[in-house]
Design a protein around this nucleic acid. Sequence first.
DNA 1: GCACAGTGTGCCATGTCATGGCACAGAATA
DNA 2: TATTCTGTGCCATGACATGGCACACTGTGC
Lengths: 256, 256
Amino acid sequence: MRNVLNTLRVLEEVASRQPIGVGELARLLEMPKSSVQRALVTLSAAGWIRPNSGEITRWVMTTKALAVGGHASGDLGLRDAAVPIMEDLRRRTEETIHLTVPEDDKVVLIERLETPKPVRISMALGHALPLHASANGKAVLANSGSEIVSLLLVNELPRYTDTTITDPDQLLAELAAIRERGFAVNHGEWRSDVGSVAAAVMGGPEKPIASLSANIPMSRLTEEAEAAYGIAVSEAASSLSARLGYASGPAARTGC
Amino acid sequence: MRNVLNTLRVLEEVASRQPIGVGELARLLEMPKSSVQRALVTLSAAGWIRPNSGEITRWVMTTKALAVGGHASGDLGLRDAAVPIMEDLRRRTEETIHLTVPEDDKVVLIERLETPKPVRISMALGHALPLHASANGKAVLANSGSEIVSLLLVNELPRYTDTTITDPDQLLAELAAIRERGFAVNHGEWRSDVGSVAAAVMGGPEKPIASLSANIPMSRLTEEAEAAYGIAVSEAASSLSARLGYASGPAARTGC
DNA sequence: GCACAGTGTGCCATGTCATGGCACAGAATA
DNA sequence: TATTCTGTGCCATGACATGGCACACTGTGC
């Protein structure tokens, strides 16, 4: 299905560079103009893109991708179950709350509630965060099987800021500490001005299915706040795990 | 490009019914099983879907669609410009704020900020609302050219609740009233328990590019509240129009 | 135990239809 | 007017999507 793959490439390129025309796309994707043209017409017929208002020769996305992505991400009903709990968490913390799901070697933001405070952290839905340099990622990692962690450590850990953990042993120690205290903390390890406190949502033993976090500008993240947020976040995460049918706790009961 | 269209149909179907297997999809889409199978493998190779964790034979969406739809909807930068204004609007109203864009014969929700209050109205991003039965839709319609309105009136207006406006003359009168007072109101015309107050964001004369609304449970929507929200919403909408480069006002100045 | 109705997957001859080079039309330079 | 960008249209070639069919497997019921 080469044509389908090509057409999807065109779609993604349009999404990230809209509004854009045939020629530029062909150059960027190193594809023949005719092929790109056909792909565009097809995508338009399918309702995923449309000519930009005014100019007919450049294309923009419709909201189709949003509608498809919207009721699509994560396990069924995760978001519905999560939103009320996230509301509650925002009331308690008054900070921006993120819901992420693990995917491949990253976690992806699928829902957020913003803090009412003026200094905010804003990230687009669908944004991916590294496992080793985000509170959500580390919370997920700490609750995954050791083979997942080993797999991550095969390659070098990318550094993003001064505080990013890149040493494998240090990461293992950090994960142990997270398991110990029940929540993960990030001190500007990915973006130097962004801190966060996260806890994993479990779907079974060693099976994290999501993660909840409170995201705080580093300027507001004191030691006491950290502890308080940690408790709030881990309570919210267990309560979400429970609502999704997994009774969290030190010993997971296997069925029957 | 029949195969592309088919593959996209498969993708949409997976999105709305995940997790789902080959056979069921083939039946729903009335396509040969082999074709569906190939489409699924292709989509998986492109990273849009993946086998559901645990069972290999049923498929779920990845977050690709979300990422693509995320930085894709609406005119470039609309969302970035809108979010701070929406924040402000939420502070003033303490109600759920919606940002929608017109698309074909509907308006589509592309961003929202939730009220801190317990009784909320929740709608998925990407959700479409009718033009004649939502505050956002009516706000857009009232600021569009009359040919757009006529086009809508060619077909009968669907009724959703007791208060839905289905009479063309009544709708025209309503639109005139909206232009007069500067904002649109919806009294449970689409969902009987949901009210809202909206104002259009303009990109040029008779060229609405978006709409902002405060969404309020009917139980909370008093007359005084309505007037206050109306002012807040229309101020926010003009300020967003201005930020996007269109100086709103009674007389639009044409370039140069 | 066996038949049966479900799954999902693999194979392959047929001929449809995507390919991509090329030519053309129009716009915006110079 | 010549030039160089756009975007679009056409068409012979042959690659590859098609979809019927067979197979493997699982769970159910007699």
